[in-house]
Design a protein around this nucleic acid. Structure first.
Length: 311
DNA sequence: AACGCGTGCAACCGCAAGCTT
DNA sequence: CAAGCTTGCGGTTGCACGCGT
């Protein structure tokens, strides 16, 4: 429309001066009229670029440079299962996080997971001790280190695979992963994650134990609360089935015949790890270092507890 | 010390929805 | 009602950094 005025458009990393101009604009006019920033000659950036910069970096109360906490990871995982790749929507459940953050987090996670699952099956160190049969039909116990950054001390709890993982009320309620961890379904892994249309929307809150996981932002008061899919409930019901391949891919990894899972209050450590050294990254990884590489959620899909009024 | 690789993040692009005229 | 414009969203890409070899 305006011909070659495009030529003057600046791209690439933002300078501090540009940020300042943008912030001043928002102070004066609010976070809108992005395109006027360029038309007024304040910046040689497109309105889109300005908006993106504001939303992703300059907006107040952003958790910039802060790793996703375990709680946040769970929220993302559960909401992604429910909403699909609706990053903006998911981000509204995560104060201080942007859709870009969520998107990047998820994409990194996907890559990591895909890589692990790709390389694991023939890994010599993972399999050889397991014998001939499909390892995932064995019944190992499973250990996960305490994810807390506080110390190497972890109050591990053994979770026999064939037993119910539902812990008592102050513990995380464990729900087995859906088929996405079933190696036979890996081909369509991404697609499968992208849509799970069977999720219902009834009155439930996202909780860990008896605690609501996160407060829902006011803007979402009209949103249906998170729910637990019938599919997940089905997995839950099947969890006692020794042939239900919840941890199959674990066997394919470095998991031996035994592993423990530890859950409990320290596991729920909130996000204060921000800017203090990346607790998640640094959680104790003693011998079972496989956990470092392991997608956290492979074991810990959270259960959404019904509101008391519901049952 | 150098190199390669993996990862995280910032930013761009195209498309779609919503709004305004 | 339609066209143009703005805003928002999701996918993708490129770069910088850290880590292992």
């Amino acid at each position: 429309m305006e011909g070659n005025r495009e030529e003057g458009i600046r791209k690439g990393p933002w300078k501090a001066e540009e940020d300042e101009v943008l912030i001043n604009h928002v102070r004066k006019y609010g976070p809108r009229d992005w395109s006027s920033i360029r038309s007024k000659g304040l910046l040689r950036r497109t309105g889109k670029s300005c908006r993106l910069r504001w939303v992703n970096k300059l907006r107040p109360n952003l958790k910039n440079g802060c790793k996703f906490s375990l709680e946040e990871e769970r929220v993302v995982i559960e909401l992604q299962a429910q909403f699909g790749n609706k990053w903006a929507r998911i981000a509204t459940y995560l104060p201080g996080r942007t859709d870009n953050d969520v998107k990047n987090f998820w994409s990194s996670r996907q890559k990591r997971l895909a890589r692990i699952l790709q390389t694991s099956p023939n890994s010599s160190k993972s399999q050889k001790s397991k014998g001939d049969g499909p390892s995932y039909h064995e019944v190992p116990t499973f250990e996960a280190r305490n994810f807390s950054s506080s110390s190497g001390e972890s109050s591990s709890k053994v979770l026999p695979r064939s037993s119910s993982c539902i812990q008592n009320s102050d513990m995380i309620k464990m729900v087995p992963l859906p088929d996405l961890v079933n190696p036979s379904k890996l081909v369509n892994f991404d697609q499968d994650l992208g849509h799970q249309p069977e999720f219902n929307t009834t009155e439930k809150n996202l909780c860990i134990g008896s605690q609501p996981l996160i407060p829902f932002p006011p803007a979402l008061k009209s949103q249906p609360d998170l729910t637990f899919s019938s599919e997940s409930e089905d997995h839950l019901a099947r969890f006692g089935d020794p042939y239900f391949d919840v941890f199959g891919t674990l066997d394919a990894l470095k998991l031996g015949n035994e592993a423990e899972l530890s859950f409990g209050p320290p596991f729920l450590e909130p996000t204060e790890s921000c800017r203090t050294g990346g607790a998640i990254e640094k959680f104790d990884t003693t011998p079972d270092v496989f956990f470092d590489d392991f997608p956290v959620d492979m074991f810990d899909q959270i259960e959404l507890l019904p509101k008391s009024s519901q049952q």
